[in-house]
Design a protein around this nucleic acid. Structure first.
Lengths: 228, 228
DNA sequence: ACCTGAACACCGTTCAAGT
DNA sequence: ACCTGAACACCGTTCAAGT
């Protein structure tokens, strides 16, 4: 048997007694604390166990290897973000395109910057390529929510809502990530937050086939007017 | 002295004899090969040394620690990308805004997808947060090139070219990264490549204060017309 | 059912010895 | 000036023994 087993990323066993539930909980919070204190590259199973107040052996009873632990943590985090976006989606359904656009941007920024330190730490974790299918899953949920939103608005129809939703997610997710990964994210984040609403609006308008009474080219510019 | 020294990320010593230059070169190509074969998470100094045909000790004569090696490798790669963008910048200077926009997008896509496998492997490397000032430096060069470009065009002036250039880089860089990190990047990349030109154009037009003879709102829609 | 911690293999890094 | 490889500390993971 190999020393560094790869195996599945699933938890090894589910805690049944109350004591065990508390243990797993302690391991999770311990992991976050270690992550925040020393960063992903210095994160050690021993350190996590010590911080959680259990022995390494206990940790390995619930997680087959370190990556599975980080995977589970990332999963929780992405779950929260996907839910935020889905809630935003139902709240914004049937609204005008500009409202939808601004709502998407602010929901995304809020979700990602609620706890900047944790987001940053988890970006480093997610670099592990074995973990990428997870990111893919979360992305798909978010993308589906965005797509529903685009087809719900009465302002416009989109030729390829899937492509637009996909691009929107990649652009929002990627740009915010690239900013949060900087050493001092705050000023850059402020800059980006100021620009993204305009970027998102103009992209959506450029992608829409408007269904108003006005002629096409005039509608396009009318849509933009309250931006300035 | 700590076992896992952090220290500066600089190379430890510069090779003086021809033999030594060849050694360092072999270490670099060995690193890329190992990276492509087993990925960043399994990359080992011993493995790299073996692949390069030298002993570990030799490796550590030129690089104070593993991170310094990866840092140097990433540096070379980013250097190439920054140069590509700077060349594109001089080539596109003074051109109409639409030409500039399309040129930026295609230069970026070309630079990042020239060797997708290497780009992917290096994304995983760059997750190490200690390395982020490097990414910051490369970004600044690219951002400066974009900013020059925006102020060079006679089609339009920008109220805050710095903010626009910054956003452009974050959006292009982030979205392409998020796509290349997927398990099978090709189809997603095709999708994104189809959308980014329109996104970039519409964002630039929405950010520009046009200086033509026509009235503002008409100019805005005219700019978009050859997109459809 | 859950927990412990010594034990083992492997990895990063060093350094005395070689050309 | 450059290279080697055994040696050392530390990390991931296991497993026999405990409650």
């Amino acid at each position: 048997m190999p020393v560094r087993a790869q195996g599945p990323l699933k938890p090894r066993k589910v805690p049944r007694q109350a004591r065990a539930v508390a243990t797993v909980e302690a391991i999770f919070t311990g992991t976050i604390q270690v992550l925040l204190k020393v960063g992903a590259s210095q994160l050690t199973t021993t350190r996590v166990a010590a911080r959680a107040g259990v022995s390494v052996g206990t940790l390995y009873q619930y997680f087959p290897h370190k990556r599975a632990l980080l995977y589970a943590l990332l999963r929780q985090h992405l779950e929260g973000i996907a839910q935020t976006m889905e809630r935003a989606s139902t709240r914004l359904a049937d609204k005008p395109l500009n409202v939808i656009s601004d709502g998407i941007v602010s929901a995304w920024l809020e979700a990602k910057t609620k706890d900047i330190a944790v987001s940053r730490a988890l970006y480093a974790v997610s670099a592990d390529f074995d973990i990428n299918d997870l990111l893919g899953k979360g992305s798909q949920r978010i993308q589906a929510a965005l797509e529903r939103l685009l087809t719900s608005t009465m302002d416009a129809t989109f030729e390829d809502p899937r492509a637009v939703a996909f691009t929107l997610r990649a652009v929002l997710g990627g740009s915010v990530r690239s900013v949060l990964e900087r050493n001092t994210p705050e000023p850059s984040l402020a800059l980006l937050s100021g620009e993204l609403p305009r970027l998102c609006r103009s992209y959506l308008h450029a992608s829409a086939m408007p269904i108003g009474r006005t002629r096409r080219r005039h509608v396009a510019s009318e849509r933009n007017e309250d931006l300035n």
